[in-house]
């Protein structure tokens, strides 16, 4: 084999290996899984090259963990990928998240906000409709729903991001084990 072809093949394989490692975000050991949510209590940014690159690509200009925690969900509670062909409910209690501000936002597969006529992209701790005990349900659907309706695009994969800003330290410490909002696929 010619030398340049040998080097070219090796470089292509190297790029493929690197790309696979970067894309394999869910399996980075720095992240915990709690239900559908994947995240970290303290991202070792700048110390872990792979993680730093993953955060740069998938959460550009993210804040450090002391300021905000980002939890990602691309699967429901049965481990199936979130797909706007289905409807989902996100159920939780506002009192279970101890933070200055938190929100749940829907993003398309491309990680941008999903266009919709209602211009509703997220719910946060100030605008969720809850019952008297603080329980809430967010209805994630491409078709109009009552209550807390979070629109998605029809028949497309999507992601959810739970942001927690200035969370209570004791709460953040338990983030990998406490009850977080559950994402359930609804029967058609």
């Amino acid at each position: 084999m010619k030398k340049w072809l040998f080097v070219l093949v090796a470089v292509i394989v190297g790029v493929a290996v690197g790309t696979y490692r970067i894309a394999n975000l869910e399996h980075n050991k720095a992240f915990f899984r709690n239900g559908s949510w994947t995240g970290s209590k303290a991202l070792p940014l700048g110390k872990d090259n792979l993680l730093t690159t993953q955060v740069s690509l998938f959460a550009l200009f993210a804040l450090p963990s002391e300021e905000a925690i980002y939890l990602f969900a691309k699967r429901d509670d049965k481990e199936a990928l979130l797909d706007a062909e289905n409807d989902y409910s996100i159920q939780g209690n506002v009192n279970e998240i101890d933070a200055k501000y938190w929100s749940i936002t829907a993003y398309g597969k491309d990680l941008y906000l999903i266009p919709n006529k209602k211009e509703r992209y997220s719910f946060n701790n100030t605008n969720l409709q809850t019952d008297s005990a603080g329980n809430f349900t967010i209805n994630v659907s491409a078709t109009k729903q009552s209550g807390n309706w979070l629109p998605t695009a029809d028949k497309k994969r999507f992601n959810l991001v739970l942001r927690i800003y200035k969370g209570d330290k004791a709460f953040i410490e338990k983030l990998d084990s406490i009850s977080l909002p559950q994402i359930k696929r609804l029967a058609k």
């Binding site: 080097v7 190297g14 790029v15 290996v17 690197g18 790309t19 490692r21 690159t53």
Partner: peptide
């Protein structure tokens, strides 16, 4: 070369 390429990429 494979290791070096993926290291530089990351």
């Amino acid at each position: 070369i494979v290791y070096g390429t993926q290291y530089i990429l990351i």
